[in-house]
Design a protein around this nucleic acid. Structure first.
Lengths: 357, 357
DNA sequence: CTGTTAGCGCTTTCAT
DNA sequence: ATGAAAGCGCTAACAG
């Protein structure tokens, strides 16, 4: 008589399968599967008593369902991929928290990747994520490689772009106009009486939201007749985006050398704005007496420092929540075989007037 | 004769499988699989000419391998899970970058989750991640629920705990003693002549690294004979960890009311230390004249603000790199059927003396 | 409410 | 260097 030999390479970990649990409880695999996947209170399922026995057996045996097999069999991965530029930014952190709350409420898992503000890293991540068959993808920003776009399109799953209003969205959009928000900030400074307004940002367009903000600055300056012979305005570009606090300070020194008459500076983010403030303090320049400072993003540092920094506040968590809800509706539609028509959700922003201007 | 009926729910995406490609080329699935997975130049594989034909067919038919099926069949998910407490912390961000670099070099993907500094959230995430069969797990900190510990142990995969030196590690460890680092900071302040040193931190032990730092403060104060009748030292606990910049400022006011003689304050992190600094500036208290300030973590804000804040610098990226390399060695061992004995990697820290003390 | 029967698409193993 | 057979652990579909 032949004896089945044990698996060639002994599994290092547990080997408890659904069949083991079923045998232990004395039911079929299917019953265990149903007990574990009981969907809603009304869906067809096992009796509650049996279900509790099964759950107890799973716990006691240390059984954890194999999502890999489940995904493979059901063609549903049960996860959503979110790509964020940085792991050190309170704006994206809050957006991700909003997204997590919205997505996990429906039983989907959120798997994160970070792009380091690079579209080629984003492309690699999108490819890697897609090979695991996410049910939806959330991207930050509206600028991507053509390969990223076409792969997402070919995947045929819902996509939401956030923090931007791309001209040609891949799918859905949740965001605001970075250019318009910055222009509003410039108009605010103009209304407060500032006439020699400068802009500090990074050297490239790698951070496309930063580039949009610079464009918004230039357009507002032109509209207000404040260009004073400069082609785009008094712009200092310093450092690879996202520029650091310290680079903001260095840019300020360069700015004052080049245009001593400057009386206000708009920074691409609160981080560089804080660097400008610290450098002013080092130089003994009064803020806002000698120079007024405005930032972008309403980071914690901007509302804590002394003086507090005027900035643009965005409902970051709201972006995440809206993106999550939109994605869930799109996924539900997809599961039902339909397709949700592309939607755009506009998120409001507001100017936070503080002591620095 | 019976005709196989078409799949009940039409697949939304592509339906090209490896078998389709094999049929097109006129070989077996196995040959296609080998051509796609050709590992190294020396490994057994198909002839190069055939391989090119197969690759061309894949391209032409738009075939993309199904990682889900591949993972299921090979029992290798090709990813590693990393859990970090926050998406808004430059320390963990740098650690993650180091980890990414180390892990992706070997073809594994890094999937992130964030715990919000909560062990119960960590437990949920660990369970969710384990169900996708990661080949390894990296945790932040050494404090976890018993369920987290037992599930990880039961999974039988390599685990690395970082940023801490737990008394009873789950598996491998890469970190340093938060208590010892804070004690070194206290001794440094003592050597500079400060005698009335206080500590500002959060209200609970949710952030266990914060609790370790508070303990290190108390032990150093006791050893130096600076307790002055207080049981543990001059400790202000304010806010749920991780405490914010603003909470640091509020804690300072409470501190000065309670112990007006205080001449130096050690903060649980640079963020609260910066809040203390800003509040001092608001109150018109000279730093370090009236009160000296020290933080922890060498965050960007601490080396940018004016005056710059004395802090403890840790090689964050080094933690990530070491954790990644350790994990890879452990995974290689596991794939070979062996088990890497538990290792501990000590990461150095250093006191950054700056203008605030 | 529960069980049975067939796979999901790929890789492992063993032949050739 | 290539092929054939046998699953990996789970769920869809249908039957009771």
């Amino acid at each position: 008589m032949t004896v089945p030999k044990p698996p060639a390479s002994p599994r290092t970990g547990r080997a408890v399968t659904m069949a083991d649990v079923a045998a232990q409880v004395g039911v079929s695999k299917m019953t265990v599967s149903r007990a574990l996947n009981r969907s809603g209170s009304s869906g067809r399922s096992t009796s509650e008593a049996l279900r509790q026995r099964i759950l107890a057996a799973c716990e006691q045996m240390g059984y954890v369902i194999d999502q890999t097999a489940r995904t493979f069999s059901s063609q549903r991965s049960g996860f959503v991929a979110a790509l964020i530029p940085s792991l050190n930014n309170s704006n994206f952190s809050e957006t991700t928290q909003g997204l997590t709350a919205a997505v996990e409420a429906s039983g989907l898992q959120l798997l994160l990747g970070y792009t380091d503000y690079r579209v080629d890293t984003e492309e690699r991540l999108v490819t890697a994520m897609l090979s695991r068959r996410p049910e939806g993808v959330v991207l930050t920003g509206g600028s991507h490689t053509t390969a990223t776009r076409s792969r997402l399109q070919a995947a045929g799953i819902p996509v939401v772009e956030t923090w931007d209003l791309p001209a040609a969205p891949i799918g859905h959009t949740v965001g605001f106009s970075n250019a318009e928000a910055t222009a509003a900030l410039v108009r605010h400074l103009h209304a407060k009486g500032y006439r020699h307004i400068a802009f500090i940002g990074g050297t490239s367009n790698r951070d496309t939201r930063g580039a949009d903000r610079r464009r918004g600055y230039s357009e507002a300056m032109r509209a207000l007749g404040l260009l004073h012979g400069t082609p785009e305005g008094r712009i200092i570009s310093f450092g690879q985006p996202p520029i650091t606090m310290a680079q903001g300070g260095e840019a300020l020194l360069q700015l004052v050398r080049q245009w001593p008459e400057v009386d206000a500076v708009v920074c691409v983010s609160d981080l560089s704005a804080f660097g400008v403030l610290a450098e002013c303090q080092r130089q003994g320049w009064a803020v806002p007496g000698r120079i007024a400072i405005a930032g972008f993003g309403d980071f914690e540092v901007a509302r804590t420092c002394h003086p507090r920094i005027t900035t643009v506040a965005v409902d970051c968590a709201g972006i995440g929540r809206a993106a999550g809800e939109l994605l869930l509706r799109a996924i539900d539609a997809a599961r039902a075989g339909a397709r949700l028509p592309a939607e755009t959700v506009l998120i409001p922003f507001s100017i936070m007037q503080r002591e620095s201007t």
